[in-house]
Every structure is written in structure tokens, then in C-alpha cells.
């Protein structure tokens, strides 16, 4: 069978690689190509303009704002989401304390209920979530300001209407919408960690915090790392587009305080008829995404633990 091995391997790889090349690599090459043209996106005619789009990009204030917001999304949303998800998953799976007659290692009381509740947002489309939160943030009749008034706070923030708050409001929605998925992901990872390790830690008198940092996190590192890349890409791409596009003033405002690169790509390509410039921004987005993935991989490199 040895002589047929390569044919066998190639046979399996051809189809996925071809699909990848056609639907992933090819569009990348196309966008890079179009970024050197003046294609409007509304007619088949265009001509080459060299690096005009790139010089324009460097001078474009709105682009730099959107880049900064996208970088904030890529840095903050993963930290908060993953931190929160790790905490919740830990509490749900191993954070409980021994109850009479139960197993030594268990989640907090009612953890099976929480597991389901945390996953709820994942069932809703991000569009619906964004619309719901638009109502929640409504400064006049929204839940938040009603609660604030209810507990006697005079301040009635304008949330999405306030340039200092809008970006945080939008990020909070992305965190809310994605954290449930990571709770489930990390729960699955934690379930595969042998209970003996926890029992040993427990016998040694380790607190919950110590157990988390010394046992759970190191053994879960691979999952955390891939989860990190995944949410980072979500935060740079689809999720941030949906929430910003649907919820914010303008969209992208007030005064460009929430615009992100994906939104800017969309506006240039589909509102302003400047598809070539949009692909230029897309190329910049590609660079940011690659840099993010490389950074996470680099920082996350650790010795693999066998157990």
C-alpha cells in the first residue's frame, strides 16, 4: 500500500484545497488587484491607478478612526469575552463546593440551568440582538434608563447618542452575544480535564482561584488560544459590522465615534460607489487581521502539557 499513499493523500486534499483556493485565496487576490484600480462597482469599466488608493488611505482621517476602533474591538472584546467565559465556565463546572453525597468536583448550585441560559444569546441572530439592544439603550423608554430612574439616579445618559459611550455600548453587545458560545466551548474543554487533578488540588488545600490558575487554565490553554483567534476575527469582522451598522448613530457615529473598518468598507463599496477604494480598506483589514492572529499565536506559545 505504501506506493499508493501519496495518491491517497492527494485525493483527499484536492477538493478542500481547491475550494479554499477558489473561495478564500482567489477573492483575496482579486481584492488586492482591484485596490490598484478605480473600479466603481457599478459598471464593468475601470482602469489601473497605481497606488493612488493607498496614498488616499493614508490621508483619510475616517480610515484611521475606523482602524483604531477595529483594533480596540480586536483587543478588548476578546479579553473581556474570554475572561468572562472562563470565569463562568469554571464556576459552572468546577467552581462548586462539595455537597453531601455529591461528587467531589462539581459546578455551583443550579449550574445545569445556567449552562442553558448562557447559550441563549447564541440562538438569536446578531441582527435581532442588535435591534433588541437598540430598544434597551433607548434614552427615553429603554430598560437601562428606566432602571436608573427607578433606583433614583438622576443621570439619564444618551448611550448610543453619546460619543463617549457609544463604542462601549456596542462592544458590550458583542460580548453579551458571544460569551455564551465560549462558556460552552470551555465547558467542553474542562470536562476533558481529569477529575483526579482537581481532587489532588483540593486535597492540597488549593483555593478556587489557585485551582483555576494552576490547573484549569494551563490545561485549557489550547482551547483558549484558538477561541481567542476566533473571537478576534469575529470582532474585526461580521459581529462588529452588524452591531455598528444596525445600532449606531449614522451609522458609525456620533461623529465617527463607532465607525469600524468593515463598516467603512461597506459604505465605500455599496453607498459611495467606490468599490476599488473599499477593497483598499479591505486589504488594510486583512493586514490587521493577520497581525492579530500572528500576535495571539506568538504570545500564546507555550509548552504543550500532556495528561
Amino acid at each position: 500500500m505504501q506506493h499508493g499513499k501519496y495518491r491517497f493523500v492527494v485525493g483527499f486534499l484536492t477538493a478542500p484545497l481547491a475550494l479554499y483556493a477558489i473561495f478564500v485565496v482567489w477573492p483575496f487576490i482579486q481584492s488586492i488587484f482591484y485596490s490598484f484600480t478605480n473600479w466603481s462597482g457599478l459598471s464593468p469599466e475601470f482602469s489601473m491607478v497605481g497606488i493612488d488608493n493607498y496614498t488616499r488611505l493614508v490621508e483619510d482621517d475616517v480610515f484611521w478612526k475606523s482602524l483604531w476602533h477595529s483594533v480596540l474591538f480586536a483587543l478588548l472584546v476578546p479579553v473581556v469575552t474570554i475572561g468572562l467565559a472562563l470565569f463562568l465556565a469554571f464556576m459552572v463546572n468546577v467552581g462548586g463546593r462539595k455537597r453531601r453525597g455529591g461528587p467531589a468536583i462539581t459546578g455551583v448550585r443550579g449550574s445545569s440551568f445556567y449552562k442553558i441560559v448562557y447559550f441563549f444569546p447564541q440562538v438569536l441572530s446578531i441582527v435581532i440582538i442588535a435591534l433588541l439592544f437598540q430598544f434597551i439603550y433607548n434614552p427615553r423608554s429603554g430598560v437601562i434608563n428606566a432602571l436608573l430612574a427607578g433606583i433614583g439616579v438622576d443621570a439619564q445618559p444618551e448611550w448610543l447618542g453619546d460619543p463617549n459611550l457609544a463604542l462601549w455600548c456596542v462592544m458590550a453587545v458583542v460580548v453579551w452575544a458571544t460569551v455564551g458560545f465560549f462558556v460552552v466551548l470551555f465547558s467542553a474543554g474542562m470536562a476533558s480535564i481529569p477529575a483526579e487533578l482537581y481532587e489532588a488540588a483540593l486535597l492540597d488545600g488549593a483555593s478556587r482561584v489557585t485551582t483555576f490558575f494552576k490547573v484549569t487554565l494551563p490545561l485549557l490553554w489550547d482551547t483558549v488560544q484558538s477561541g481567542w483567534v476566533y473571537i478576534g476575527i469575529l470582532a474585526l469582522g461580521a459581529e462588529s459590522f452588524a452591531v455598528v451598522h444596525i445600532m449606531t448613530v449614522g451609522p458609525g457615529g456620533p461623529d465617527y465615534s463607532t465607525t469600524v473598518m468593515v463598516l467603512y468598507v461597506y459604505q465605500k463599496a455599496f453607498r459611495d460607489g467606490q468599490a476599488a477604494y473599499a477593497t483598499t480598506i479591505g486589504v488594510a483589514l486583512l493586514a490587521v487581521t493577520l497581525a492579530f492572529a500572528a500576535l495571539v499565536m506568538r504570545l500564546g506559545r507555550r509548552e504543550r502539557l500532556e495528561y
Binding site: E158, G250, G252, G253, P254, D255, Q267, D272
Partner: peptide
């Protein structure tokens, strides 16, 4: 000039002025 009208004059200019900023 859709982008100018909506995003710049509207949102970044008049919107900010009417919000008192």
C-alpha cells in the same frame, strides 16, 4: 453627495450641534 450629506454634515456636524457638543 450622499456621504457628505448624511455622514458629515448630518451626523458629524448638525447632529453634534443639536446635541450641544
Amino acid at each position: 453627495y450622499v456621504a457628505l450629506q448624511k455622514e458629515k454634515i448630518g451626523t458629524a456636524g448638525l447632529g453634534e450641534m443639536m446635541a450641544g457638543r
